Amino acid sequence: MFDVGWSELLLIGVVALIVIGPEDLPRMFHTLGRMTAKARSMAREFNSAMEDAARQSGIKEATDDLKGMRNLTSKKALGLDALDRAVDKFEKWDPKLPTAKTVGMKPDPAAPGKTPVPPAAAPAAAAPGTGVAAAAPSAAVAPEPGEAAPGKRQLKAVRRSDLQG
């Protein structure tokens, strides 16, 4: 509170011993201790009285209600945190760069005017110490057009006019 160190306390004690004298010094410290204890008890009583007044006036319930309202209107509760993440992802997106989803995609063979292009094969690696290129791993068998690959769902586009009529 007063930020007094041990060296300052020692200096104050020596000055008090010289000024007050050795006979009156114990009575002065006793009186000073009682005054300090009385001041602390008054501070505790004041603090408890203020807490009681706040409790009786309903401030605690009001602050709890405000905290609840703050939680209801938070970004997470409203789903805005997901929107922020989506906006950040969209702002960082570059349409010219291929993504993991578009790397192995094949064009639709049924699309008019387009011919399917097989994905680029990985270059063959040389077998160690032989100087001969190793055979490329065999590619998975592609499903027939119109069939879904095993474990994959096939998406089908439907026009609104087809649904209504």
Rank of each mutant, 00 (worst) to 15 (best):
L10P: 02
G129Y: 06
K75R: 08
V158P: 05
M105P: 01
A62L: 09
D64G: 08
P118T: 02
A126R: 08
E45H: 09
A142P: 07
K114P: 02
E147P: 01
P22K: 09
Q164K: 14
S161I: 12
A127D: 15
K101V: 08
T99R: 00
A157R: 09
V158A: 14
R27I: 00
A149T: 00
G151K: 02
G68I: 05
N47T: 14
R70P: 08
K60Y: 15
A135M: 03
P119R: 07
L11R: 05
M105G: 02
P22S: 11
V117C: 02
D81I: 12
R153W: 11
W6P: 09
R55P: 00
A86R: 14
A135D: 13
W93G: 00
A125N: 09
S161Q: 09
D24H: 09
V87A: 15
F2K: 08
E45T: 14
N47V: 12
Q154V: 00
G58D: 00
A39E: 15
N47W: 13
G165C: 04
V132I: 06
K89M: 10
I59F: 11
V19A: 15
I20G: 01
E51S: 08
L80Q: 11
A126Y: 10
K152N: 07
A133I: 01
P95A: 03
A77M: 13
K96F: 13
Q164D: 11
K96W: 09
A100Y: 05
W93I: 11
A77N: 10
P150Q: 11
G151S: 02
S138M: 04
D84T: 13
V4K: 00
P98A: 13
G5H: 05
L66D: 04
S7M: 13
E144D: 04
A77T: 15
N47A: 15
L72S: 12
P98T: 15
K96R: 09
M69P: 07
I20E: 04
F46M: 07
A77K: 07
V14Q: 00
S161W: 04
T73Q: 02
T115D: 13
P137T: 02
E61D: 14
L66T: 05
A120G: 07
G79P: 03
A82V: 14
Q56G: 01
T63P: 01
M28D: 03
K106E: 09
